[in-house]
Design a binder for these strands. Sequence first.
DNA 1: CTGAAAGCGCTTACAG
DNA 2: CTGAAAGCGCTTACAG
Lengths: 340, 340
Amino acid sequence: MKKEVVTLKKLAQILDLSTSTVSRALNDHPDISEETRTKVKNLAQSMNYVPNIFAKGFRNHKTNIIGVVVPNITHYFTTTMVRGILEEAAIRGYRVIISESNNDVKKQTEMLNTMMQFGVDGILASLTKMTRDVDAVLQTLNKLPLILFDKVSNKIPCTQVTINDEEAAYNAIEHLINIEKKRIAIIKEREFSYTSEKRYAGYLRALKEHNIKVDDKLVISVDDISLEQGKRMTNHLLSIKNRPDAIFAITDSAAVGVIQTLKKFNIKIPEDIAVIGFSNSRLSTVIEPNLTTVDQPGETIGRNAIKYLIDEIENKTQIVSNKMIEIKGSLIIRDSTFKV
Amino acid sequence: MKKEVVTLKKLAQILDLSTSTVSRALNDHPDISEETRTKVKNLAQSMNYVPNIFAKGFRNHKTNIIGVVVPNITHYFTTTMVRGILEEAAIRGYRVIISESNNDVKKQTEMLNTMMQFGVDGILASLTKMTRDVDAVLQTLNKLPLILFDKVSNKIPCTQVTINDEEAAYNAIEHLINIEKKRIAIIKEREFSYTSEKRYAGYLRALKEHNIKVDDKLVISVDDISLEQGKRMTNHLLSIKNRPDAIFAITDSAAVGVIQTLKKFNIKIPEDIAVIGFSNSRLSTVIEPNLTTVDQPGETIGRNAIKYLIDEIENKTQIVSNKMIEIKGSLIIRDSTFKV
DNA sequence: CTGAAAGCGCTTACAG
DNA sequence: CTGAAAGCGCTTACAG
């Protein structure tokens, strides 16, 4: 089963050179003569020489592996980010190991530790929902280049790559105001979710700038933002005295639940109540009416995150690396809000 | 930045033992006395000793990394399999590197090679659609434990883990026959897709066993099975003389396209035309009417695939390893077929 | 411009 | 039951 492996030593023997020279030639060391270098490289190529990555990693304390932690790999948006990460990693010669935290801080800590133990060169993390407990992340950051993406946290002094949640939400709400909605409800997550709070901030700013008073009864916070919760909260919103004429759900799933419930009660969308989601997931063009939502460029986010990380690993950036990178998301207007 | 690292040597010095002994104690070598072993283990624990995985991998020619190749990581069903793989990998002490082939044989070959070069212990592959060219896969199989899952191929003599496509399709068609459908169309992929052919085989068997003659005009093959193709092919099916009274699309996406088109023409579902998909994706409960479909237990498939692979890697199985493992999928009946 | 030698952290055949 | 030594494949400071 084991094939005869081509090593530096073997190449050296054949060329009657030392392994040192062969190694240097292959690594384009300036000391080596042009002639030797090409001779070595040609042989290496023709013999299909492949460096033993483990010997190399062992020697250099560098593995060219990047660890990625995400809360939930089955979310479509997450997979688009992962795709960007994988593509850019391949280009730059890195491999990626992925793990899922399932939104569990304890599991996330475990994952971070395993990855460090495993010797990854750096870590890309999208945090669990509750970012109260960030000790493990901070500790990891002490030892390794680490960059946050998507689910980030201002408690962690490192480079962070997200969508411009606040602005995107602002634009969504402004759109609702433009189509003459006055009582705009928001379904968001309970505090501690960075993303949700940002979107909420955009909601508040839009209302404020258009002189609409915030009605607390229209601000709904749930523990777990899901399709089911979208349904439940819509039932609730329909029961209050002065019901809303628009509902902004901070995820598409929840927005789908909203629409399904409104339809059950024969409420006209968007005439009676308009609906906006967030993500531009595949659901948004399957639900009827099609959902107005914010498109998040997942691949770009993933690609950027790993770019910054690799730059840090390879020390191309100074250590001033606590930038906030915001990738623009764009509002996609569909039937759930379009008609005035 | 670099922390002082605890190595075997350091432990040995402190305990006044040789590194050999410490190594053996930690690895539960039978030669070592109970006393020494516990002494060593206690110290290791208290000093937070973590073996250098790269030194270990280098030494043992074992990396505890498994490579996974999938056509498209953004498919929901794929992510559920990945989740099963990740969970089982963690339990068994393996790490997983993932890459996407984008249904491109050339890219798939590249991925396989990179992974081998990288020194993975084994590979889990879900193949590109066109499995005509399997040379690279066969070569990989020659050098490394390799198991196929989901998108498999009978041209490759190795263990394969899939859903029972044929039987699941058979059940779907039988269900349509039971609700008195006579002209059942199928939208499948052009040949070379193992999965599609299996489902088609189930279709044929069901018709045959119920004495329904196959009408070639109702067998639609497309290159790329997608929502758009579902729409287009439905338009086509509606235009033929004796139009179908049921459509079985071999993916949920295509089935959603089917339903959307039928609705556009105000055709009653399922009374006029019933629809069945395959996957139980999230779309299936958002589209209206909700889609009858086959639930594929992705996590179970992923978990099984990696189990067999690790068993092979660790030589727990004989080398007779060209089993076909079929995981049962179950028909989930919803409104797109339910009412008679 | 090239080579000999040491060493990264681990395991294991050999010796006692 | 324990230790000394070699070696996995690579890189690099040192020497010439």
